[in-house]
């Protein structure tokens, strides 16, 4: 497992909402400790794809999946795989900051507490290290018991990041994490994501192509449910092999 450089392997994946096919024959390997950006126009399937990686689409009725998704070698859709266990191992940050209406401390401690960590000392340590990893500690260390809703939007999103990191996930999914933020908060999140790749594998959906170009190592272009092209970010943005990719990144549609 450790020798295999791929954190995630997707094999001949097809995905359906009822009769409608949302993803067509996706094959993709995602390397450990890299940032992979998923780009493409609205409705292309990139968010659907992201949410398959932590089984969030299980919550929707009438969906069907063919093919395999391996997380560090384990088939996450195998019958014996538990969705709660998968989600513990794959963290997620959403489009809009969604802290719980609880204190800052309890937001970060929520995951570890669910999974049985009860002692105050252990929780304190996890909360501090997670908040530090999300570059929020210095701003909130004196207000840990204030409501998370009293934070600004950018702080809230970093809190959500800390909340996900508290679980020490193997893979971190980010679904357009900066689309609701101002430019300064956005650049803070981008810096953080770039720091995180030393310890985490990050997969990020973004509508912002500059963002993809700035922060990612690999870029995957989705269009109409198909993975049109994937490769090193430099190459995708300078020498795209497919016509559709070129049209999209040069702004001819999307």
């Amino acid at each position: 497992m450790v020798n295999d450089p791929n954190a995630v392997e997707v094999k001949t994946l097809n995905f359906f909402y009822g009769e409608k096919q949302a993803l067509k024959n996706i094959n993709l390997d995602i390397k450990r400790n890299e940032i992979t950006a998923l780009i493409g126009p609205s409705g292309c399937g990139k968010s659907t794809f992201l949410r398959l990686l932590n089984r969030m689409n299980d919550l929707i009725a009438g969906v069907r999946l063919e093919g395999k998704i391996l997380l560090n070698g384990m088939d996450i859709y195998a019958p014996e795989a538990e969705s709660a266990d998968i989600r513990r191992r794959v963290g997620m940050v959403f489009q809009k900051p969604n802290p719980f209406p609880k204190s800052i401390f309890n937001n970060v401690a929520y995951g570890p507490m669910l999974h049985g960590i009860k002692n105050k000392h252990g929780l304190n340590r996890i909360v501090e290290s997670s908040l530090r990893a999300a570059a929020l500690w210095e701003e909130v260390k004196d207000d840990l018991h204030k409501s998370a809703l009293s934070l600004s939007g950018g702080q809230q999103q970093r809190l959500c990041l800390a909340r996900a990191l508290a679980m020490e996930p193997e893979v971190l999914l980010m679904d357009e994490p900066t689309s609701a933020l101002d430019p300064i908060s956005t650049s803070k999140i981008e810096e953080l994501v770039m720091d995180l790749k030393n310890s985490y594998t990050v997969i990020i959906v973004t509508h912002n192509m500059q963002q993809a170009a700035r922060i990612s190592d690999k870029t995957c272009f989705f269009y109409m449910g198909e993975l049109i092209e994937s490769g090193a970010t430099d190459q995708i943005f300078t020498l795209p092999q497919q016509r559709q990719t070129e049209n999209y990144i040069t702004g001819r549609f999307g």
């Binding site: 959403f94 809009k96 719980f100 929520y110 995951g111 669910l114 909340r163």
Partner: peptide
């Protein structure tokens, strides 16, 4: 809001949790 529920599920919480 659904977003609270999603956040909880995404951390590996069960339905009841």
């Amino acid at each position: 809001p659904l977003s609270y529920r999603e956040a909880s599920y995404a951390l590996g919480a069960s339905h009841w949790q």
